[in-house]
């Protein structure tokens, strides 16, 4: 009933739960945000593309949460403070430029992260090996839209610059160490900054100059400190499941 799709999970006990939750929550929450676009996308092709990305992320989330416990209990019965996703992914969709900027920042990070995990022999290697291919498409989609929007019209340029600037403060958290996740954080951060800088410049936009974290937000999401819109997102997501305790769906 509740089996998440493919790859073979690692042996029980081998999984660092905190890391599975962190990565699983990132994917779950971003998938939810992207799914909010259904019926509202600017063009029919983007209805298909955004849902495609949301479905890939939901597949990753189901696999990762199942490593940490029961996927539905974890998704529907945890309180806001128990979620371990970065704050970037919970940010509301805003206009299409905000959604694309969030996608650019996150998918670039996720591709580099999964690339590292896939190359290793840790418990996340099988998932990362499969997901890195999906995420390469997510990054490609976000990059192409960043170029079109940045180098499109005056209005699209302005909106995209605003979005990059607004979300920049949530990007520092991506490079905070996560317990049980063996990655070279410095390489991750450098690789990410190189790729983002290249795309942003090619799109005739400016790399934001502000800090990459607010006064107390560095690593906050990973510790269960979220932003106000997240609670409302969870209220909507969890309401029906919580209204029927013990029911099967």
């Amino acid at each position: 009933m509740k089996q998440a799709p493919t790859p073979v999970p690692p042996a029980a006990g081998a999984v660092p739960t905190a890391a599975a939750l962190a990565l699983g929550d990132d994917a779950l929450v971003l998938s939810h945000r992207l799914a909010e676009w259904a019926g509202n996308a600017p063009v029919l092709e983007e209805e298909v593309a955004l849902t495609n990305i949301a479905l890939d992320l939901l597949g990753q989330a189901r696999f990762l949460l199942s490593l940490a416990g029961d996927e539905d209990e974890l998704a529907y019965l945890r309180e806001e403070r128990a979620f371990r996703n970065v704050q970037l992914v919970e940010q509301p969709n805003g206009d299409f430029a905000h959604t694309i900027a969030r996608q650019l920042f996150f998918s670039t990070y996720q591709e580099l992260l999964f690339g590292q995990l896939a190359a290793g022999d840790g418990p996340f290697a099988p998932l990362a090996g499969k997901a890195v291919k999906e995420v390469a498409y997510h990054r490609d989609h976000a990059e192409h839209w960043t170029l079109r929007l940045g180098d499109g019209t005056e209005e699209s340029h302005r909106r995209t610059q605003t979005a990059l600037d607004a979300l920049w403060r949530y990007t520092g958290e991506l490079f905070e160490p996560v317990e049980g996740l063996e990655v070279d954080v410095t390489a991750l951060r450098d690789g990410w900054l190189t790729l983002i800088t290249k795309t942003v410049r090619q799109a005739t936009l400016e790399l934001p100059t502000g800090p990459q974290a607010g006064a107390w937000t560095a690593g906050a999401g990973r510790q269960g400190l979220h932003t106000e819109p997240f609670g409302r997102m969870l209220a909507e997501m969890q309401h029906l499941h919580r209204s029927h305790p013990g029911a099967s769906w």
Partner: peptide
Amino acid sequence: ITRAPSLR
């Protein structure tokens, strides 16, 4: 979609 009661 945003209120679906299980991930499946």
